[in-house]
Design a protein around this nucleic acid. Sequence first.
DNA 1: TTAGGGTTAG
Length: 630
Amino acid sequence: MLTSSLAAPPALSEVPSVPSTSAATFSSPAQLRQLHAKLVKSGISFSAADLPRIAVVCGRSPSREDFQYARSIIVSGAGDGRREALVWNSSLNALAESDRPPDVLRLFSLFRAADIPPDKYTFSFVLKACTHIGSAAATMGRAVHGLVEKFGLRSELHLHNTLLLMYGSCGPMADALQLFEKMPTRDVISWNILIAQLAKKGEMAMAKRLFEAMPSRSVRSWTAMIAGYVHSGDPKTALHLFRNMQAEETSSSSSSPNEVTFVAAIAACADLGDLDLGRELHHLCRRRGFHSNVRLCNTLIDMYVKCGSLSEARKVFDEMPERTVVSWSAMICGMAMHGRAKEALELFSEMESEVCPNGVTFLGLLHACSHMGMVEEGRRYFAGMWRDYGVRPEMEHYGCMVDLLSRAGRLQEAAEFIAAMPVAPSGAVWGALLGGARLHGDVAAGELAMRELCRLEPSNDGYYIVLCNIYAGAGRWEEVARVRRMMKEEGVKKTPGRSRVAVAGMVHEFVAGDCGHPRAAEIQRRWEELSAELRRRGYVPDTSQVMLDVGEEEKERSLARHSEKMALSFGLMSTPPGTTIRIMKNLRVCGDCHAAFKLVSAVSGRKIVVRDRNRFHCFEGGSCSCGDYW
DNA sequence: TTAGGGTTAG
């Protein structure tokens, strides 16, 4: 092959008199034709090393003529049919790996029409493209399976595994399972593919059956299961399995967790808010030398953020040898969650010189502005994301803007913003308006939002409850009763509040109103004592949001049994003085608990970190990090 | 020349 020693390809007009046929000298069929003409004039032909590039360039072209033209060069240069297939196969693979897998299918039909005999590699690459395309390629995938049979390749295990993967990503899982049943031989990869596909679809019961039945497991089998449990919202089982894997590690090195396994396990800690275990796993990662893996570090940042330790998240971020847009976005979103808006915006300025932001980065920025009432800054980011960064606003961004405006009390503007949206607003967008309406006691805005929400998300209990809160706040009890009747008619039940607190490595969960904890009486007594002290300091239980048709005393009793108060009371009596108490709640923290927690932080001298559904509240010395803007 | 598990948001 004639190679150019120049680092950059010369412009065509500068092609030297003895032209280089280096692959870098053409990138379109038109340039190829020009180069070809010059070569012919000079009596030089393409070398074998040029052929794959010719195949890729012309294989990507929508023109049939380009394919035929390339084929004529390849046929004369390849020498025989097998080598010709090899050249086209590598072109198929390159296209399957690129961002244009549909080109593979088009090239494959040309391939078939030209009678180039396909082999196992051809099918493998075409199936890979189907897998990348997903369900839209299901028919094509089935047709390719038919060809595999027709060409007598049914005994190829490798190809069968690729078919399993294709059925798992394109078609109904039943097709993949049927193929698996019929396979003459299977290896650990066949089992892993099936388990991973089931796990991705959340079918963990069946994935578990296969995992238990498989003859031998590899690290990937374990990791697929652990990641599957995390994705399907069961981090406890994920960590249980991780522990089992560690126990087996001593007897077999094939099940030693690697970086990917740690990513899944640390993500489980993030979901559970289990800081102690998260730290332990981080320590293990360091010992195993996994600390420079970007994805692992990104997961660690997220874990520390979600476990309430922003400083440790920042430390991981600062020590990363390289950072991607995900690292920056995770850190910016983390700062937003913790109400550190100014730092989030500063980090964004730093980020701009290193990587391009994406949609998630802007969600973080808009959240940051929203949590701190920075309306003008938020508007600026929203206006600039498409104009200056080419990031198209999606539904979540519109939702953030409505949240920003309505939290700041600009409910009229928020409603106008929704009306001007270029796409039909989702339930979450109206939900943001509803939330703002509650905050500002705006019955009309609340009713406007709820009219849409009844249509879009009639079974979402949270929205009915917020509307009840709005009516209750306005003293409109007959409306509260009407909404509750609506809920009954629709069969909508209120999700009970749940709070978790970790004490001595054990996570304890409390459900609102439930006195099932073994130390329930003690916990209640402790809260009553504390409550008496708080009252002496001016705390008055806010019974206005209790939507029970009962007397004041009963309302106060109901408030005292809020899950976050029980978790706090238990945390206070079970940990040494001075220990930070970390609580995680499934819903938004209630207003009465928020007021009480501020006082408790002053009375007890403790730092109390609460992660609710939306953000973090860090109570210390009588105030909250949210500045009461939440 | 071919196959399997992972990150921010939700």
